[in-house]
């Protein structure tokens, strides 16, 4: 994969939610591009995997979708956060921060033995 990283299990949902939170409403392709850009092109997303993830979030009621028209006049399905989605971003972000903080303690060089 040459310097690019696969998406870790379970993190894609958080990325989607967070991206939708900052960008408002996006279609699937736009969302995928945006996630890659945000990662500084370090992530290489298999675009096909995005759609089941979106469907799962929609089934869980965190996002909703409706058909709209893109800037270059293509009909596309747009996704946006629901109220529950907004809450979930906050909660998931906190969980994630806590998890990384814990992991960071293990990975930082041992100061006192």
């Amino acid at each position: 994969m040459g310097g690019k990283t696969d998406v870790w299990q379970g993190t894609l949902a958080l990325m989607v939610l967070r991206t939708l939170e900052t960008m408002g409403s996006l279609h699937g392709y736009g969302l995928a591009r945006r996630i890659e850009q945000t990662s500084g092109d370090l992530l290489e997303l298999n675009y096909g995997t995005l759609y089941p993830a979106l469907l799962k979030l929609e089934q869980e009621g965190y996002i909703r979708s409706k058909w709209g028209v893109s800037e270059n006049n293509r009909r596309a399905k747009y996704y946006e956060l629901t109220k529950a989605g907004h809450l979930q971003v906050k909660k998931a972000a906190e969980d994630w921060e806590q998890a990384t903080a814990i992991l960071a303690r293990f990975l930082s060089p041992a100061e006192e033995a």
């Binding site: 279609h27 699937g28 392709y29 736009g30 759609y51 893109s70 270059n72 293509r74 399905k77």
Partner: peptide, 16 residues
């Protein structure tokens, strides 16, 4: 409906 969404995705990507 999903076929339409995929078609849109490919069209958008192709446009880019």
């Amino acid at each position: 409906e999903f076929d339409a969404e995929i078609a849109a995705h490919i069209a958008l990507h192709t446009d880019d």
